[in-house]
């Protein structure tokens, strides 16, 4: 069966995490099998070790382990502060991104125990802003609001926002910061997508499943059956992230 919409999953990973799990994709081949089962065309992928081991390890592993699947899996990297010497200073880090064709970065401030702020990442965040490189941030909207107050033009994708409704935090930020986006894997309230689109249109929402932390099918059926126009669904499912990727200036 061919789905009516082409999906690019902006939030999925493979690899073996330390936390308890039921069914994961242990390697890239298993992730591709999951994409095929669900009818997802491509994904922006991170390696579990980027989050649960260390970006030092995971950023290399993701490149190595998806080599056979580059047409379906687009690699991403995670950031760490350069002050500790764990990651190079901003300019060198960007050069490494160019060399490996990395257009998307992730930040896990809670898991990796750092402040995602000007003091810690000032140089890098300025370069990301200048080069239109999207930063996927797994943190709550209080922290993201503070980040955007310092870097109002930074392209920030707030991931895993939910599953409880966060609109009271979210909508004021959406109205103030033009480059704030929401990845949808946890934005699962009844009528949440419809309500968001009615107020702000579809261009700030990016489709994600959160696989393997979430069940992929939920996000798929929610968007396919959302009470919004087909063109809105296309924008959320793939158009918005394709536009962001095109605008990256590596």
């Amino acid at each position: 069966m061919k789905l009516k919409i082409r999906f690019i999953d902006c939030n999925c990973s493979f690899g073996v995490p330390g936390i308890p799990f039921f069914r994961i994709a242990k390697n890239a081949a298993e992730l591709v099998e999951e994409l095929d089962f669900c009818g997802i065309d491509k994904c922006l992928v991170h390696h579990a070790s980027m989050r649960f081991d260390s970006p030092i390890i995971g950023n290399n592993r993701v490149i190595e382990e998806i080599k056979e699947y580059r047409s379906r899996l687009l690699p991403t990297w995670a950031i760490l502060p350069s002050q500790t010497g764990e990651q190079p200073e901003a300019k060198i880090f960007i050069k490494k991104m160019i060399k490996n064709d990395i257009k998307i970065l992730w930040s896990f401030p809670n898991e990796h125990r750092y402040n995602l702020d000007e003091n810690t990442f000032g140089d890098l965040l300025q370069l990301l802003t200048k080069r239109h490189i999207p930063l996927f941030v797994k943190d709550n909207l209080l922290s993201i609001g503070k980040l955007l107050a310092s870097f109002p033009k930074l392209i920030v994708i707030a991931v895993n926002q939910g599953p409880h409704n966060v609109d009271r935090y979210l909508f004021p930020l959406i109205e103030k910061y033009p480059n704030l986006y929401i990845e949808t894997s946890s934005y699962i309230g009844a009528d949440a997508i419809e309500n968001f689109c009615a107020k702000y249109g579809p261009n700030k929402l990016l489709f994600g499943t959160g696989f393997p932390n979430n069940c992929s099918g939920g996000s798929i059926l929610q968007l396919i059956q959302a009470n919004i126009s087909h063109s809105y669904k296309e924008a959320i499912a793939h158009g918005n992230i394709e536009r962001l990727l095109k605008e990256v200036k590596l």
Binding site: P163, N165, I188, G189, A190, L221, Q222
Partner: peptide, 10 residues
């Protein structure tokens, strides 16, 4: 709280 389609999809 949660979309029935999301839940059914899972």
């Amino acid at each position: 709280w949660y979309s029935p389609h999301f839940a059914a999809g899972a």
